[in-house]
Design a protein around this nucleic acid. Structure first.
Length: 155
DNA sequence: GCCAACGTTGGC
DNA sequence: GCCAACGTTGGC
């Protein structure tokens, strides 16, 4: 089982939206590094931290979700009127993937980015490194458990 | 709104 | 293959 951190701007899609929907297709990702992670490493039962990005003081980890199954082609890439339409992607060789996630829990409190930066134990986290811009990042089991503890929930 | 730090595109 | 120009992400 693997552990991830997945970013979403809450004004686009928040933990409360996922709590309501229970299951959601996590798509619209147009970055090859992230695509390769989805394709090669994501698996059923993986756990992910839900991260609110570009949210001012509310930026940080807000809860947990579970990967429902293997990644599959993102339908938005074939929809010509979609913002995420990719005319260069072919149906028999899709370029972009997404994955379904299931709501697991919302943390009792926000674990903010500024708080994460103060934690010595998390100082090597990919999320906190300069220049990180990937919307999905691998998280170590130790980091995952520690952030769950900060959020007030057992991992 | 600004801007650093990327990633992508396309001319050569 | 190089690299300048451009676009995007995301913290501040």
């Amino acid at each position: 089982m693997k552990y991830w951190l997945m970013k979403s701007e809450p004004k686009e899609y928040s933990i409360d939206d996922l709590m309501r929907d229970r299951i959601q297709f996590w798509g619209d990702i147009r970055n090859y590094q992230v695509r390769n992670m989805l394709r090669d490493e994501f698996g059923k039962g993986d756990l992910a931290l839900f991260y609110h990005s570009s949210a001012g003081k509310e930026t940080g980890v807000v809860g947990l979700m579970e990967v429902v199954g293997e990644a599959y082609p993102d339908p938005a890439q074939f929809a010509s009127k979609n913002k995420y339409y990719d005319p260069k992607s072919q149906k028999d060789n899709p370029r972009w993937l997404g994955v379904e996630v299931r709501f697991k829990q919302k943390f009792q409190r926000l674990v903010s980015l500024s708080e994460l930066r103060t934690e010595e134990k998390l100082s090597s986290m990919r999320l906190l490194q300069k220049g990180n811009r990937l919307s999905i990042l691998a998280v170590t089991p130790t980091e995952f458990a520690y952030i769950c503890k900060l959020g007030g929930r057992a991992g």
